[in-house]
Structures are given as structure tokens and as C-alpha cells.
Write a protein that binds this DNA or RNA. Structure first.
Length: 201
DNA sequence: AATCCCACCAACCGCTCCTTG
DNA sequence: GCAAGGAGCGGTTGGTGGGAT
């Protein structure tokens, strides 16, 4: 991580934030079947949200963040799981070239897949796949010494960054991809933004 | 059979963003 | 406009299983 940490990092005990939970009294590590069942039962009864208070209400000795992660990445009923298809591979590559490491945005375009799953898959499979094609996984441009003819060295268009003007509200397009990604805080998820399946085909 | 190495992935950590009062 | 707290995100770590030696 290369975020500006500020002077407080030298003095962690002066953190401006209280911890999200009392770590001495929370379980860590792998979830047991019983914990999963409790979490599922609670969310079925009360719905998602209120993660901070959920552990107590559900009778779990877990941090709220941990509960949220477990639900989103593993317990949610609409998860697809299983191997990624070749089409999904290509879609991830294209979306990553467009959006960078915005895993949640990429996951938003891939129903049934989670940001964590995609991130892991990227780091373990796709990075290597691109390198073997002579493509830099971060820039999506050709690696000079591995020059082949796999891909024209086209500069990326509109790869967003927090420092770029209009971040979060811009429209990005990729020439060979039939995408119209309008990123807007107040935009409704529109059917027109769900044509990624066609684009990947 | 033992051990080492590597790939995979669930989960954690620390940060920023967003909402609310 | 500001501060505080909750939610969400992305990077990283650690445990585990399988293949190689």
C-alpha cells in the first residue's frame, strides 16, 4: 500500500480512530460451521447492514467487518463460485485495463463474482497469463524485451485515478470494447451498462 | 516416506469514502 | 462547514493442499 499515512503512523497508539471492535474478545481466523449458520440465520431474519452491531445481535464473537466479508465473499446465496471461464478471463482483463485495480467496480460487472475472488484470481492467474503474452499487467502495454505481435501498443484511454479530474464521474471507453461505463454516484444501475457479456463474446 | 516448494484463497489490516448529526 | 462513526475498498498475509524432489 502506498497511501499517505501521515505523521500519526509513527505513533499508532495516538490513532485518531478507535478500533472497530474489541480485539481481545473476538475470534479470528477460519469460520466454523456454527458461526456461518448463525450469520446466515441472522441476515435472513434481519437483512444485510448494521455490520458493527451485527456480531452482538447474532451472538457472534467476531468483528463486524469480518462478518461482512464472510457474508459477501462466501455465504451470499447468489455467488457463482467455481472456475472462471475464458470469457470471464477476457472480461476481467478488459475491465482492468479500463478501471485499474478497482476490484469492486469490476466485480459489479460480473454477477456472482466478488471483488476478493476477482482480485485473488487476477494475482494468481491473470497476471501470469498476461506476462506470458508479453503484456505488463499493470499498464496493459507491451513489455519491450518480450516483444511479440500479440497486441498493438495502444495507450490506454481514460484509466482513472483519484488525482485525475472527474474521477468517479467520468465516462470511459475502450476502442475494441462495446462499453459505456458511466461512473456516477447518483446514477441508477442501468440496463445499458450490462452489455459486458456481449463485449466479452 | 519425508520434506520442500509453490499456488491458491480466505481472512485480516489499515486506509478512504460516505453519511449523519 | 465540520467532526464522528459506519461502511466499503484494496493490499497483504498466513494456512493449507498438492506436486516435485
Amino acid at each position: 500500500m502506498n497511501r499517505s499515512l501521515g505523521p500519526l503512523m509513527a505513533f499508532p497508539h495516538f490513532s485518531a480512530r478507535s478500533p472497530c471492535c474489541e480485539k481481545e474478545h473476538t475470534n479470528k481466523g477460519a469460520w466454523s460451521k456454527e458461526e456461518d449458520d448463525r450469520l446466515i440465520a441472522h441476515i435472513r431474519a434481519h437483512g444485510e447492514g448494521g455490520w458493527r452491531s451485527l456480531p452482538k445481535a447474532a451472538g457472534l464473537s467476531r468483528c463486524g467487518k469480518s462478518c461482512r466479508l464472510r457474508w459477501i465473499n462466501y455465504l451470499r446465496p447468489d455467488l457463482k463460485r467455481g472456475n472462471f471461464t475464458e470469457e470471464e478471463d477476457e472480461l476481467i482483463i478488459k475491465l482492468h485495463s479500463l478501471l485499474g485495480n478497482k476490484w469492486s467496480l469490476i466485480a459489479g460487472s460480473m454477477p456472482g463474482r466478488t471483488d476478493n475472488e476477482i482480485k485473488n484470481y487476477w494475482n494468481t492467474h491473470i497476471k501470469r497469463k498476461l506476462l506470458s503474452r508479453g503484456i505488463d499487467p499493470q499498464t496493459h502495454s507491451r513489455i519491450p524485451e518480450a516483444a511479440g505481435n500479440q497486441m498493438p501498443n495502444v495507450p490506454l484511454q481514460g484509466t482513472p485515478s483519484k488525482d485525475s479530474p472527474g474521477y468517479g464521474r467520468s465516462c470511459f471507453r475502450l476502442p475494441d470494447l462495446n462499453l459505456d461505463l458511466t461512473l456516477s454516484h447518483d446514477a441508477e444501475p442501468s440496463p445499458s451498462s450490462s452489455n459486458y457479456g456481449e463485449a466479452a463474446a
